[in-house]
Design a binder for these strands. Structure first.
Lengths: 210, 210
DNA sequence: AACATTTACTTAACGGTGTTAATTTAACGG
DNA sequence: CCGTTAAATTAACACCGTTAAGTAAATGTT
């Protein structure tokens, strides 16, 4: 039974209703496995109604990722209360990994699934705002360590350092998410793998005296 | 026009014809985007003929991965000619990354795409044979470094060390493959990222003197 | 030599997909 | 009070993976 006029607030409400239903299903069973009809059923609408709010399935996914990137950034920002720069950097790695391993399907959507590249222009998130942009937060945290003169002398590119740390932690998490059920490899405990990666990153990047 | 009898060799030939056509398409455009009808057209058969040789699309993919895992192992084995254990270990990392970055869609199928876990029972590859099992090759190479007493004293688990190296290299490669087109991040050169990861791994894992 | 059987393959068809077009229903502005 | 418009629906399209049913050629048996 379709009534007519809808305030902008109501439209937005329905948008987030769709996003939340879709996320729950995507996370539980993967994007490809979930149908538009299924998402619609979940919120008692017809499948075609979704197209009044999103261009296509991909657009629903993008909207979800935008919201979740913000959630990740918010979560990671809690480490800013740590005063020591190096400790803060390590804590960021652990917080990131905790997110990835707590919500593996989430993480897969965000950082492992094939997708069209994310354009800052088209995102609702503000780039270079640490509260919304997790990469910028990482860069900031790395930069603090850099300014404290704790990195090895030859390491002068903060982006390069940040990307190496990201790669290390992401490597551990993504292998865990994708391959850890594989019987082929005799996997060590994920906590041990994560801890060793952190240690290796710190030892490999910081100056010798502690 | 269907003739009747086919030798086992001919059956096998058709199997690899299907595999090769499917791989080419999968690698070019991703598994989901390629249809069975398309694979069939490529080799001038009807779509249903594929089902005479494979249970379903997933089975075609598995067969491809089996072949390609072997190809990767073969490629990586060339590093065994290097005599120094530490150099050999580094060379393995570079060779692995070269494979991943040269055949990104291949690599995605093998190590990044969601898939049912790989069971050694059902694979044609021999586990713990360095010529076919790349993880075993890595473990062997790591073990040589271990036996040479080059790792830090507290590192006693060869699997853990191997998995950390794998995670580091995989992290660099998978971020490159999935995210490097992303305008959000100011990416450093991939060669610099790979080199720094190698350096960090070596510094983080090996004993101090050299 | 004739014929039933088996094999390799094809076309037809099924249920389901993302998406678009056409249609209905309800509230608003005049 | 009625046409317009917005929100929703149902119908429909082209295509997907897969299965069922059908067809043609080589074989083994008689």
């Amino acid at each position: 039974m379709p009534p007519k006029p809808k305030t902008e607030a109501e439209r937005q409400q329905l948008r987030t209703l769709i996003i939340d239903a879709a996320r729950e299903l995507f996370v539980a069973r993967g994007v490809e496995a979930v149908t538009m009809r299924e998402i619609a059923k979940r919120i008692d609408y017809s499948a075609t109604s979704i197209y009044l709010h999103f261009a296509d399935k991909e657009a629903v996914l993008r909207a979800i990722l935008d919201v979740d990137m913000l959630a990740l950034a918010k979560r990671l920002n809690t480490i800013l209360q740590i005063s020591d720069a190096v400790e803060r950097m390590q804590a960021l790695g652990f917080a990131y990994a905790e997110f990835a391993l707590s919500f593996p399907n989430h993480y897969r959507l965000m950082f492992m699934a094939e997708r069209t590249p994310c354009d800052p222009e088209k995102s609702s998130l503000q780039k270079n705002n640490a509260e919304q942009d997790s990469y910028f937060l990482l860069k900031t945290v790395v930069n603090d360590v850099y300014l404290a003169g704790r990195f090895r002398a030859e390491l002068q590119d903060v982006d390069l350092i940040a990307q190496t740390i990201w790669a290390g932690i992401h490597g551990v998490c993504s292998l865990e998410i994708n391959m850890a059920r594989d019987k082929w490899v005799n996997w060590a405990e994920i906590s041990a793998r994560l801890q060793l990666m952190q240690t290796v990153l710190i030892r490999g990047l910081l100056r010798e005296p502690t």
